[in-house]
């Protein structure tokens, strides 16, 4: 590093490209959503009915809640693959406990169980220094095993009519309102609090975060607990809407939650993203699902479209990152 090379001009920064790219990136996915929405509205008259629209929100509430939780973990630089198992476990738990503790008691205990399972994930990852992908892959089998054990492989059912409260409708179903409430709460937590800024920092540069005095272990445990609680809440909705639960119900949830976040524009590399993106991503996937039904398309192609969409989203993320250097 020399003093002698002095007379060079101090390098001028050219900030123009960055913000423009970010703006495109911010809006791109929303434009895409509006596009799908408009296309469906034109192509399928039944799409526009308020019944169908509220049905969409109701349908997506479970994966939407899971995706909001997943977004927090992904932003902090981790993955939670155990959400599906936690979901099934909590669903079963709520069904089995409703006789003893009543509806509210069963729900509260089930969410706390989800939180606890998430905390176990977080502790393994933070204190045991295990990669989150592997740790939650392993615990997903363990948790699913627990779920199978407590039902002994059967479907848990209840005849308590009050248990199916999530189907009640106040404009939207209770399940939808729960989803909206969780999305808003987590959205505020991530965007406007010190905790949220800490998550971005840990995901963006863990060493810098550590040297800045951020307690990384605490954050990791907290974020996986939240993810577990979200999966638990989603599981309760599933159980409540069906009046029953078995250990197979969550098999696709964890990956669907990650896919929703990524399609919405949350970066899988961590440090970038927002809860509203997960909601948009989940909505897009749900609209595609809805479109296939309404337009009478052959559902065998649905997974192909899903997959291509995820690829497109990840490709965009990589491209934008590379340009920024």
């Amino acid at each position: 590093m020399s003093d002698v090379t002095a007379p060079e001009q101090p390098q001028e920064v050219t900030p123009t490209r960055g913000p423009r790219i970010r703006a495109t990136r911010d809006l791109g996915i929303v434009v895409f959503l509006v596009g799908i929405f408009a296309a469906l509205a034109i192509a399928a008259p039944s799409f526009r009915t308020s019944g169908n629209l509220s049905n969409i929100v109701n349908q997506m509430s479970m994966q939407g809640i899971a995706a909001c939780g997943a977004t927090l973990t992904i932003v902090s630089g981790g993955f939670d693959l155990s959400q599906g198992s936690v979901y099934a476990f909590c669903a079963i738990l709520s069904v089995m406990l409703v006789h003893t503790f009543g509806v509210l008691g069963a729900f509260v205990i089930a969410v706390l169980a989800g939180l606890g399972l998430g905390a176990i994930n977080g502790a393994i990852i933070a204190l045991g220094r295990v990669n989150s992908f592997i740790a939650t892959l392993a615990t997903s089998y363990v948790f699913l095993g627990f779920a199978t054990v407590i039902t002994q492989g059967n479907v848990a059912t209840t005849s308590n009519q009050n248990f199916m409260v999530m189907n009640n409708t106040y404009g939207l179903t209770v399940a939808s309102w729960v989803f909206i409430a969780i999305a808003v709460l987590l959205g505020i937590l991530l965007a406007y609090t010190r905790f949220g800024r800490g998550l971005y920092a840990i995901g963006g540069n863990p060493e810098a975060a550590r040297l800045s005095g951020i307690n990384i272990s605490f954050y990791r445990i907290a974020v996986f607990s939240i993810s577990g609680a979200c999966a638990g809440a989603a599981g309760i909705i599933a159980a409540s809407q069906a009046g029953s639960a078995d250990s197979s119900i969550g098999s696709t949830l964890a990956l669907l939650a990650i896919a929703s976040s990524v399609v919405g524009g949350v970066s899988i590399l961590g440090g970038q993203g927002a809860v509203w993106r997960a909601v948009v991503g989940a909505l897009i996937l749900e609209l595609i699902n809805n479109g296939f039904v309404l337009l009478n398309l052959n559902p065998v192609y649905e997974d192909v479209v899903f997959g291509l969409l995820v690829l497109l989203a990840v490709g965009m993320d990589q491209l934008l990152r590379r340009r920024r250097t």
Binding site: T193, F195, R197, Y200, G204, N205, A208, S212, I214, G271
Partner: peptide
């Protein structure tokens, strides 16, 4: 590698090690 969170804004980086910029619960 050790200092900055490159993908975040100047304001966020400045606030990273200084919790007192925000009030209770770090809401800001």
């Amino acid at each position: 590698q050790q200092g900055l969170v490159l993908g975040r804004s100047v304001a966020e980086n400045l606030a990273l090690s200084k919790p007192q910029t925000s009030g209770h619960l770090g809401f800001a």
